[in-house]
Design a protein around this nucleic acid. Structure first.
Lengths: 290, 290
DNA sequence: GCAGGATGGTAAGTAAAGCTGATCAATCAG
DNA sequence: CTGATTGATCAGCTTTACTTACCATCCTGC
């Protein structure tokens, strides 16, 4: 019922007005002169009113004078939108929300983020950190585009892209016999005062599963855990990335047998596309950690 | 360089989103489902990013969610413009400026304008009145769309459409011998105290041209002229439309020989179209005075 | 587990739109 | 009058935008 205006003929009209003639306008829009004549004629027919005076060369009718500023306005809106979309697609603008476990957030992300914003200065990034469960829930709820976390139990709604393996090791104080050792066998831990923590579940299903029943304490909070270790109350197992390097008195010794590692990678909703910004981040991280 | 968005596919996308599926959307826009699938696919290719999740039914990608409100905005602008133009073309909105000589403005226009606004309630009309020279200059300068005036000397830039003939007659007081007569011959005026006025130039080139040299006075102002006539200082010639009917003591007697009339009609710029509103008025006046 | 009815995607064929190149009439400058 | 330039017109080609018909998949009810 309302006529559907096409963008191109409107542009032709403005070109004719701005250039003062069909030939010059045709050159500007990289078409031949008959193309403009016919397209504009078609537009006039659709509107039911002439835009240019017939016979007179490139002179607007009163109706044409009425239309031109309005055409220009619509074209401006169109070009603004078009440019905005291209900027998103080309990763020159946009934003993304991501979540990561604390060890990744504090040990990997600072460098990654700095490099990312250098490559994609137009993209705004929000980073939330929390436990692996928190990260998974945020991704599942669509609160964040991407999660950077360790692999939990499989979930059909989630897709996980492994990026690096984070080997489990023993953490002890610098005066402990393990300190300075190349590696430690799990059975050696059976005689130790062993402190459990949130990452201890990584042991289940491995040869060292028995250690889980051997905990003297269980401390979920990282600050408390390190305080215990510094105080010499015992040793614990931690993935290397979670080892708090800033404590001079603590040492990390790899576990030689069994070799246990958590798989760190990108978590996203399965079967769902990423926003252009999130996609840029996912590609960037994959490249950076490959 | 910037991709040129077409309006129709954007509308398809919104239909799919609003209807929750391609089939329902196709029904809404009176197309078949493959038409939408292909048009939207083409749009996605042009943008370089998917709008709907592949495989998933009618689910937007994050990029799609970003686009939809912007598409809706552009379509709103488009439809507003389209509707506005149609309203102009269909004479449901618009405006026009016209000029008329005082006799026409006061004797013909009141009725014409009342009928016009009844037919075209959306069109705003401005009416300026002035001498025939003023009307001609306003039309020539493009200050008004239409002039309603008597025919002056020909001008290639102007086009005149005659509408009615306004016969010249003698105006005298009710106690004058001419009062009540059927007609008067020009030679009878040679013995009278004759007052000239702006319309006296109509006599030139006629048998009665001699009367112009016979004026006792020349009064350009209409109010002064009628005052003179009412005071019985003489008689004058006037076109019938210019005869001030509201003065009970004045009488109008047609001039039988020569039959002189001014041609009243529409004046407009030659070779230039009228605005839709002006065109409505021109057609209306032509019909009304036919 | 298997028909029946949704979903959306794909392929082939068609009508129309959009463009080019050649040509034309009209206008204008030298 | 001539040569250049204006916009209009037409034939012919290419591309686009559809439609119809068909296919694979998924969900629902029996």
């Amino acid at each position: 019922m309302l006529p559907e205006l096409k963008i191109t003929p409107l542009r032709y009209v403005l070109a004719v007005v701005d250039q003062g003639g069909f030939h010059a306008a045709a050159r500007q829009v990289h078409r031949t002169q008959p193309a403009l004549s016919m397209a504009i004629r078609e537009l006039e027919n659709r509107l039911g009113e002439a835009l240019f005076e017939r016979g007179n060369q490139a002179t607007l009718t009163p109706f044409g004078r009425y239309c031109v500023p309005r055409f220009r306005e619509l074209l401006t809106q169109h070009d603004r939108l078009s440019g905005e979309l291209v900027a998103q697609v080309e990763r020159q603008a946009g934003h993304l929300d991501m979540a990561a476990v604390p060890s990744v957030a504090s040990r990997l992300m600072p460098r990654l983020l700095a490099d990312f914003v250098a490559d994609y200065p137009g993209i705004r990034v929000s980073l939330h950190d929390g436990t692996a469960d928190f990260v998974r829930d945020q991704v599942l709820a669509g609160e964040v585009d991407l999660g950077l976390t360790s692999l939990g139990e499989g979930n059909a709604a989630l897709s996980f892209t492994p990026l690096l393996r984070d080997a489990l090791g023993v953490v002890c104080r610098d005066d402990h016999p393990f300190a300075g050792r190349e590696a430690v066998h799990w059975q050696e831990l059976m005689g130790e005062s062993l402190i459990g923590n949130g990452t201890s579940r990584l042991l289940q299903g491995t040869d060292a599963a028995a250690l889980r029943d051997h905990h003297a304490f269980y401390i979920s909070n990282m600050v408390s855990l390190t305080a215990m270790l510094v105080a010499g109350l015992g040793v614990t197992t931690l993935p290397q990335l979670a080892f708090p390097e800033e404590y001079q008195r603590l040492r990390f010794v790899p576990l030689s047998e069994p070799r246990v590692a958590r798989e760190i990678g990108l978590l996203q909703l399965a079967g769902r596309s990423l926003s252009p910004g999130a996609s840029a981040m996912a590609d960037f991280i994959t490249r950076a950690l490959a």
